[in-house]
Amino acid sequence: MKEISVIGGGSWATALVKILAENKIRVYWYLRRQMQVEAITRERRNPDYINFAKLDTDFIEASTDLDYILSKCQHLLFVVPSAHLPTVCQQIDPQKMEDKIIISSIKGTVGLDNLLPSAYLAKIFSLLEVNQGIIAGPCHAEEIAAGRKTYMTVCATNQVLRTALSEAFASNYIQICESEDLLGVEYAAIYKNVVGLVCGMAKGMNYGDNFIAVLVSNAIYELEILLTALGIDSPRIGSSSYLGDLLVTSYSEHSRNRTFGVLIGQGYNVEQTKDTMSMVAEGYTATKGLHDMATERGLNLPILNTAYRILYNYMPVKTEFKLLERSMI
Rank of each mutant, 00 (worst) to 15 (best):
I60R: 08
T276H: 11
N131L: 04
N114D: 13
R32Q: 12
F125W: 09
T295Y: 00
P117S: 09
Y221K: 15
L227R: 14
I4V: 15
K54M: 10
A219W: 00
L31Y: 04
V195S: 03
G10M: 06
A168T: 11
Y308A: 08
I60S: 04
E178I: 06
A15W: 03
I303S: 12
C73S: 15
T306N: 04
V194C: 07
S241W: 15
P302F: 05
K100R: 14
Q74N: 13
P117V: 06
K288H: 07
T109R: 06
L304W: 00
I103Q: 02
V194W: 05
V214M: 09
I60Y: 10
P47Q: 08
Y68M: 14
G184P: 12
G267M: 06
R33H: 12
Y120E: 12
S241F: 15
A307G: 10
I103R: 04
A53N: 04
A39M: 05
D67N: 10
I19T: 09
Q132N: 10
N46E: 11
R148H: 14
Y312S: 01
V280N: 01
L182T: 15
I135D: 12
I25P: 04
N257C: 05
Q272R: 14
Y68S: 14
G265P: 11
R297F: 07
G283M: 04
M293Q: 11
E3N: 10
M279I: 12
G8H: 01
C89M: 13
K149L: 09
A281V: 13
I50W: 05
E61W: 01
Q95A: 04
T249K: 01
A39R: 09
R297Q: 10
Y191V: 10
